[in-house]
Amino acid sequence: MKKRFIAGIVATAILIPTAAFAAPTLIEMLTRTPMTIEQVKTDEIGKATLEKLYRAFPETKKFEIIDASTVQGVQTSIILQEKGGTGKKIALHTNSMTGEIEHVIQENWEPKEKPLTALTEQEIKSKVDQLIHALYGSNETYEFAMEPMENPDQKTLMLNYTQKGSTTPFYQVLVQGHSISLSLIGGETSSSDDKVEGFFTTNGKPDYFADAFLNDDKLFSLLNMSPIELKQELAKGKSVVEIAASKNVSKQQVVDVIAQSQVDLQIQSEANGELPANNLSNDHMLQAIEPKVLQVIEYRTVTPSKK
Protein backbone atom coordinates (compact mmCIF):
# COMPACT_ATOMS: atom_id res chain seq x y z
CA MET A 1 0.00 0.00 0.00
CA LYS A 2 1.30 3.42 -0.91
CA LYS A 3 2.15 5.63 2.04
CA ARG A 4 2.62 9.26 1.14
CA PHE A 5 4.98 11.47 3.10
CA ILE A 6 2.69 13.75 5.11
CA ALA A 7 4.62 16.91 5.82
CA GLY A 8 2.25 19.20 7.57
CA ILE A 9 0.88 17.27 10.50
CA VAL A 10 2.55 13.89 10.61
CA ALA A 11 6.09 14.88 9.73
CA THR A 12 8.16 17.93 10.49
CA ALA A 13 10.50 20.12 8.55
CA ILE A 14 14.01 18.92 7.93
CA LEU A 15 15.51 21.10 10.62
CA ILE A 16 19.07 21.67 9.43
CA PRO A 17 21.37 23.38 11.95
CA THR A 18 21.87 26.99 10.88
CA ALA A 19 25.63 26.62 11.16
CA ALA A 20 25.62 24.02 8.42
CA PHE A 21 24.79 26.29 5.51
CA ALA A 22 25.26 29.91 4.57
CA ALA A 23 21.84 30.20 2.93
CA PRO A 24 18.67 30.07 5.07
CA THR A 25 16.56 26.92 4.87
CA LEU A 26 13.00 27.06 3.55
CA ILE A 27 11.25 26.19 6.79
CA GLU A 28 12.17 28.51 9.63
CA MET A 29 10.95 28.22 13.18
CA LEU A 30 7.51 29.69 13.79
CA THR A 31 6.78 32.05 16.69
CA ARG A 32 7.59 30.29 19.95
CA THR A 33 5.85 30.54 23.29
CA PRO A 34 8.20 29.82 26.22
CA MET A 35 7.29 27.08 28.71
CA THR A 36 8.36 26.82 32.35
CA ILE A 37 9.75 23.59 33.77
CA GLU A 38 6.49 23.10 35.66
CA GLN A 39 4.49 23.53 32.45
CA VAL A 40 6.65 20.96 30.66
CA LYS A 41 6.15 18.40 33.42
CA THR A 42 2.37 18.88 33.49
CA ASP A 43 1.86 19.20 29.72
CA GLU A 44 0.72 15.94 28.10
CA ILE A 45 3.17 16.16 25.19
CA GLY A 46 5.98 17.42 27.41
CA LYS A 47 5.57 14.58 29.90
CA ALA A 48 5.39 11.94 27.17
CA THR A 49 8.51 13.34 25.49
CA LEU A 50 10.50 13.25 28.72
CA GLU A 51 9.34 9.71 29.45
CA LYS A 52 10.57 8.55 26.03
CA LEU A 53 13.89 10.28 26.59
CA TYR A 54 14.37 8.83 30.07
CA ARG A 55 13.62 5.31 28.81
CA ALA A 56 16.08 5.73 25.95
CA PHE A 57 18.82 7.42 27.98
CA PRO A 58 18.30 6.90 31.76
CA GLU A 59 21.22 9.21 32.57
CA THR A 60 19.19 12.19 31.28
CA LYS A 61 16.93 11.95 34.34
CA LYS A 62 19.69 13.91 36.09
CA PHE A 63 19.87 16.54 33.34
CA GLU A 64 18.35 20.00 33.77
CA ILE A 65 15.69 21.43 31.47
CA ILE A 66 17.38 24.60 30.24
CA ASP A 67 14.83 25.67 27.63
CA ALA A 68 11.32 24.70 26.51
CA SER A 69 8.71 26.18 24.20
CA THR A 70 5.74 25.49 21.96
CA VAL A 71 5.21 26.58 18.36
CA GLN A 72 1.60 27.64 17.79
CA GLY A 73 0.33 24.35 19.16
CA VAL A 74 2.17 22.46 16.40
CA GLN A 75 5.48 21.57 18.04
CA THR A 76 6.79 21.21 21.59
CA SER A 77 10.54 21.66 22.10
CA ILE A 78 12.59 20.73 25.16
CA ILE A 79 16.34 21.15 25.67
CA LEU A 80 18.15 19.38 28.50
CA GLN A 81 21.78 19.55 29.62
CA GLU A 82 23.97 18.02 32.28
CA LYS A 83 23.92 20.02 35.49
CA GLY A 84 26.53 22.74 35.60
CA GLY A 85 25.79 24.23 32.19
CA THR A 86 28.42 22.24 30.33
CA GLY A 87 28.73 18.74 28.97
CA LYS A 88 26.09 16.63 27.29
CA LYS A 89 23.05 18.34 25.81
CA ILE A 90 20.01 17.03 23.96
CA ALA A 91 17.18 18.90 22.20
CA LEU A 92 13.87 17.23 21.37
CA HIS A 93 11.21 18.61 19.01
CA THR A 94 7.90 16.77 19.27
CA ASN A 95 4.85 16.99 17.01
CA SER A 96 2.16 18.34 19.34
CA MET A 97 -0.60 16.54 17.44
CA THR A 98 0.90 13.06 17.03
CA GLY A 99 3.25 12.97 20.02
CA GLU A 100 6.08 11.78 17.78
CA ILE A 101 9.60 13.06 18.47
CA GLU A 102 10.43 14.32 15.01
CA HIS A 103 13.79 15.98 15.51
CA VAL A 104 16.64 15.34 17.94
CA ILE A 105 19.94 17.17 18.37
CA GLN A 106 22.52 15.42 20.51
CA GLU A 107 25.54 17.55 21.44
CA ASN A 108 28.79 16.95 23.31
CA TRP A 109 28.22 13.26 23.97
CA GLU A 110 31.76 12.44 22.90
CA PRO A 111 35.13 13.65 24.27
CA LYS A 112 35.85 17.26 23.27
CA GLU A 113 39.29 16.31 21.97
CA LYS A 114 37.84 14.38 19.04
CA PRO A 115 34.91 15.67 16.93
CA LEU A 116 32.50 13.13 15.53
CA THR A 117 33.63 13.81 11.98
CA ALA A 118 37.14 12.66 12.93
CA LEU A 119 35.80 9.14 13.52
CA THR A 120 35.68 6.49 10.82
CA GLU A 121 32.49 6.20 8.77
CA GLN A 122 31.66 2.94 10.53
CA GLU A 123 32.13 4.56 13.94
CA ILE A 124 29.91 7.49 12.94
CA LYS A 125 27.21 5.14 11.67
CA SER A 126 27.42 3.19 14.92
CA LYS A 127 26.84 6.36 16.97
CA VAL A 128 23.83 7.32 14.84
CA ASP A 129 22.46 3.77 14.91
CA GLN A 130 22.56 3.84 18.70
CA LEU A 131 20.58 7.08 18.79
CA ILE A 132 17.93 5.81 16.36
CA HIS A 133 17.62 2.46 18.11
CA ALA A 134 17.28 4.06 21.54
CA LEU A 135 14.48 6.44 20.53
CA TYR A 136 12.73 4.65 17.67
CA GLY A 137 13.70 0.98 17.68
CA SER A 138 15.61 -1.20 15.25
CA ASN A 139 16.81 0.31 11.97
CA GLU A 140 18.41 -2.84 10.55
CA THR A 141 15.99 -3.09 7.61
CA TYR A 142 16.79 0.37 6.23
CA GLU A 143 19.11 1.01 3.32
CA PHE A 144 21.93 3.32 4.35
CA ALA A 145 23.94 6.01 2.58
CA MET A 146 26.46 8.58 3.80
CA GLU A 147 27.78 11.57 1.89
CA PRO A 148 29.72 14.76 2.65
CA MET A 149 27.89 18.09 2.45
CA GLU A 150 29.28 21.25 0.89
CA ASN A 151 30.04 23.35 3.94
CA PRO A 152 33.17 25.52 3.83
CA ASP A 153 32.96 26.37 7.54
CA GLN A 154 32.79 22.90 9.03
CA LYS A 155 33.01 19.31 7.86
CA THR A 156 29.45 17.98 7.65
CA LEU A 157 28.17 14.52 6.79
CA MET A 158 24.64 13.53 5.81
CA LEU A 159 23.35 10.05 6.61
CA ASN A 160 20.12 8.76 5.05
CA TYR A 161 18.20 5.71 6.22
CA THR A 162 15.66 4.70 3.58
CA GLN A 163 13.07 1.95 3.40
CA LYS A 164 13.37 -0.34 0.40
CA GLY A 165 11.31 1.07 -2.47
CA SER A 166 11.08 4.52 -0.92
CA THR A 167 12.01 7.71 -2.73
CA THR A 168 12.80 9.75 0.39
CA PRO A 169 14.68 8.94 3.61
CA PHE A 170 12.87 7.67 6.68
CA TYR A 171 15.59 9.14 8.91
CA GLN A 172 17.93 11.91 7.79
CA VAL A 173 20.92 12.80 9.95
CA LEU A 174 23.53 15.56 9.85
CA VAL A 175 26.79 15.03 11.72
CA GLN A 176 29.18 17.92 12.31
CA GLY A 177 31.60 18.87 15.05
CA HIS A 178 30.27 17.41 18.29
CA SER A 179 26.61 17.16 17.25
CA ILE A 180 24.24 14.65 15.71
CA SER A 181 21.06 16.17 14.26
CA LEU A 182 18.42 13.55 13.45
CA SER A 183 15.12 14.17 11.65
CA LEU A 184 12.28 11.69 11.37
CA ILE A 185 10.93 12.25 7.86
CA GLY A 186 8.83 9.14 7.36
CA GLY A 187 9.74 8.28 3.78
CA GLU A 188 7.62 8.12 0.67
CA THR A 189 7.05 5.07 -1.48
CA SER A 190 7.67 5.26 -5.19
CA SER A 191 4.67 5.31 -7.49
CA SER A 192 3.66 5.99 -11.05
CA ASP A 193 1.96 9.24 -10.02
CA ASP A 194 3.10 12.40 -11.78
CA LYS A 195 5.10 13.81 -8.88
CA VAL A 196 8.10 16.12 -8.85
CA GLU A 197 11.10 16.09 -6.51
CA GLY A 198 12.81 19.31 -5.47
CA PHE A 199 10.33 22.15 -5.98
CA PHE A 200 12.84 23.91 -3.74
CA THR A 201 16.34 22.83 -2.78
CA THR A 202 18.71 23.48 0.10
CA ASN A 203 22.41 23.22 -0.67
CA GLY A 204 21.52 21.36 -3.84
CA LYS A 205 19.37 18.80 -2.01
CA PRO A 206 15.57 18.47 -2.48
CA ASP A 207 13.48 20.02 0.28
CA TYR A 208 11.19 17.06 0.93
CA PHE A 209 9.09 19.07 3.35
CA ALA A 210 8.03 21.49 0.61
CA ASP A 211 7.62 18.65 -1.88
CA ALA A 212 5.08 16.96 0.36
CA PHE A 213 2.95 20.09 0.43
CA LEU A 214 3.24 21.00 -3.24
CA ASN A 215 2.86 17.54 -4.79
CA ASP A 216 -0.89 17.94 -4.59
CA ASP A 217 -3.15 17.08 -7.53
CA LYS A 218 -5.82 19.48 -6.28
CA LEU A 219 -3.26 22.29 -6.23
CA PHE A 220 -2.18 21.52 -9.80
CA SER A 221 -5.83 21.55 -10.85
CA LEU A 222 -6.46 24.85 -9.05
CA LEU A 223 -3.48 26.47 -10.78
CA ASN A 224 -4.17 24.69 -14.08
CA MET A 225 -0.50 23.65 -14.19
CA SER A 226 1.48 20.44 -14.29
CA PRO A 227 3.99 19.70 -11.49
CA ILE A 228 6.87 20.33 -13.88
CA GLU A 229 5.43 23.69 -14.96
CA LEU A 230 5.05 24.75 -11.33
CA LYS A 231 8.65 23.77 -10.56
CA GLN A 232 9.89 25.74 -13.57
CA GLU A 233 8.04 28.88 -12.45
CA LEU A 234 9.31 28.54 -8.88
CA ALA A 235 12.88 28.26 -10.20
CA LYS A 236 12.48 31.77 -11.65
CA GLY A 237 12.24 33.19 -8.14
CA LYS A 238 8.45 33.37 -7.91
CA SER A 239 6.44 32.17 -4.93
CA VAL A 240 3.42 29.88 -5.21
CA VAL A 241 1.30 32.84 -4.08
CA GLU A 242 2.62 35.00 -6.92
CA ILE A 243 2.11 32.24 -9.47
CA ALA A 244 -1.45 31.77 -8.21
CA ALA A 245 -2.15 35.53 -8.41
CA SER A 246 -1.10 35.54 -12.06
CA LYS A 247 -3.88 33.02 -12.62
CA ASN A 248 -6.47 34.95 -10.59
CA VAL A 249 -6.27 32.45 -7.72
CA SER A 250 -6.15 33.93 -4.22
CA LYS A 251 -3.68 33.04 -1.48
CA GLN A 252 -6.53 31.75 0.69
CA GLN A 253 -7.69 29.39 -2.06
CA VAL A 254 -4.20 27.90 -2.22
CA VAL A 255 -4.00 27.59 1.57
CA ASP A 256 -7.41 25.93 1.76
CA VAL A 257 -6.58 23.33 -0.89
CA ILE A 258 -3.19 22.31 0.50
CA ALA A 259 -4.26 22.36 4.15
CA GLN A 260 -7.32 20.21 3.48
CA SER A 261 -5.21 17.69 1.54
CA GLN A 262 -2.83 17.36 4.48
CA VAL A 263 -5.69 16.93 6.94
CA ASP A 264 -7.30 14.31 4.69
CA LEU A 265 -4.02 12.38 4.65
CA GLN A 266 -3.82 12.60 8.44
CA ILE A 267 -7.35 11.24 8.82
CA GLN A 268 -6.69 8.44 6.33
CA SER A 269 -3.49 7.43 8.11
CA GLU A 270 -5.36 7.28 11.41
CA ALA A 271 -8.10 5.16 9.82
CA ASN A 272 -5.46 2.78 8.44
CA GLY A 273 -3.87 2.44 11.86
CA GLU A 274 -0.63 4.06 10.70
CA LEU A 275 -1.03 6.85 13.27
CA PRO A 276 -2.81 7.05 16.63
CA ALA A 277 -6.16 8.86 16.55
CA ASN A 278 -5.86 12.41 17.87
CA ASN A 279 -9.62 13.07 18.14
CA LEU A 280 -9.17 16.62 16.88
CA SER A 281 -11.78 18.29 14.71
CA ASN A 282 -11.17 19.06 11.05
CA ASP A 283 -11.15 22.79 11.84
CA HIS A 284 -8.57 22.32 14.62
CA MET A 285 -6.24 20.39 12.32
CA LEU A 286 -6.64 22.98 9.57
CA GLN A 287 -5.75 25.73 12.02
CA ALA A 288 -2.62 23.83 13.09
CA ILE A 289 -1.33 23.22 9.58
CA GLU A 290 -2.04 26.59 7.94
CA PRO A 291 1.05 28.42 9.32
CA LYS A 292 3.33 25.83 7.70
CA VAL A 293 1.40 26.00 4.43
CA LEU A 294 1.89 29.77 4.36
CA GLN A 295 5.64 29.41 4.82
CA VAL A 296 5.89 27.10 1.82
CA ILE A 297 3.67 29.06 -0.56
CA GLU A 298 5.24 32.44 0.29
CA TYR A 299 8.81 31.22 -0.12
CA ARG A 300 10.89 32.36 -3.12
CA THR A 301 13.97 30.69 -4.54
CA VAL A 302 16.95 33.04 -4.40
CA THR A 303 18.11 33.40 -7.99
CA PRO A 304 21.67 34.48 -8.91
CA SER A 305 21.90 38.20 -9.59
CA LYS A 306 22.77 39.20 -13.12
CA LYS A 307 25.90 41.29 -13.54
Score class of each variant (00 low, 15 high):
A277T: 09
I27P: 00
L234H: 04
P58Y: 02
A13I: 07
G237H: 05
F5T: 02
I65K: 00
E147W: 07
M285E: 11
V302W: 07
A91H: 06
T167C: 09
I79G: 03
D193R: 09
K247R: 15
T18L: 15
L119K: 04
Q262N: 07
E233N: 11
N224A: 12
K155W: 02
G177L: 05
I90E: 09
Q163T: 12
I267F: 08
Q287N: 12
I65D: 03
E100K: 10
E121P: 00
P34H: 01
E233H: 08
N224I: 04
V293C: 00
N108A: 10
Q130R: 04
N139V: 10
K112S: 11
V40N: 01
L159P: 01
Q72M: 11
P304S: 05
I45N: 03
K112A: 14
K236V: 04
M149N: 08
A134N: 03
V257D: 07
K231A: 13
T25P: 02
L157R: 04
K205F: 15
H178G: 04
L157Y: 14
Q252F: 06
T202C: 11
P111G: 00
T156I: 12
S221I: 04
Q176N: 13
P152W: 12
F213M: 00
D217I: 13
E123N: 00
S179W: 10
V263S: 03
A210W: 04
P304C: 06
N248Q: 15
S192L: 13
Q130I: 00
I37R: 08
E28A: 14
A11D: 14
T94H: 02
V255F: 06
E150H: 07
G177D: 08
K247D: 06
P227T: 01
T42M: 04
Q154V: 13
S281M: 03
I228V: 11
S269W: 09
S190D: 14
N224G: 07
K155T: 11
K89C: 08
T156E: 12
L182H: 04
R4G: 06
T156C: 12
F200T: 05
S179M: 13
E107S: 12
L50I: 06
G198L: 04
K125G: 11
R4Y: 12
S250D: 03
T189P: 02
R32K: 14
T12R: 14
T202H: 15
A118C: 01
A20M: 14
L234T: 02
D217H: 13
I124G: 01
F5A: 07
S239I: 06
K52L: 10
Q252T: 09
G73Y: 08
E82L: 05
F21R: 07
F200S: 05
E242T: 09
D67H: 09
I105T: 11
A23E: 15
L157W: 10
G87S: 00
I6Y: 13
Y299Q: 08
Q268Y: 10
K236L: 13
S166I: 00
Q266E: 13
A259G: 01
L275S: 02
K205Y: 15
E64W: 04
V71P: 01
K251T: 06
L223V: 05
G237V: 04
S96N: 13
I228S: 08
K61Q: 13
N282S: 13
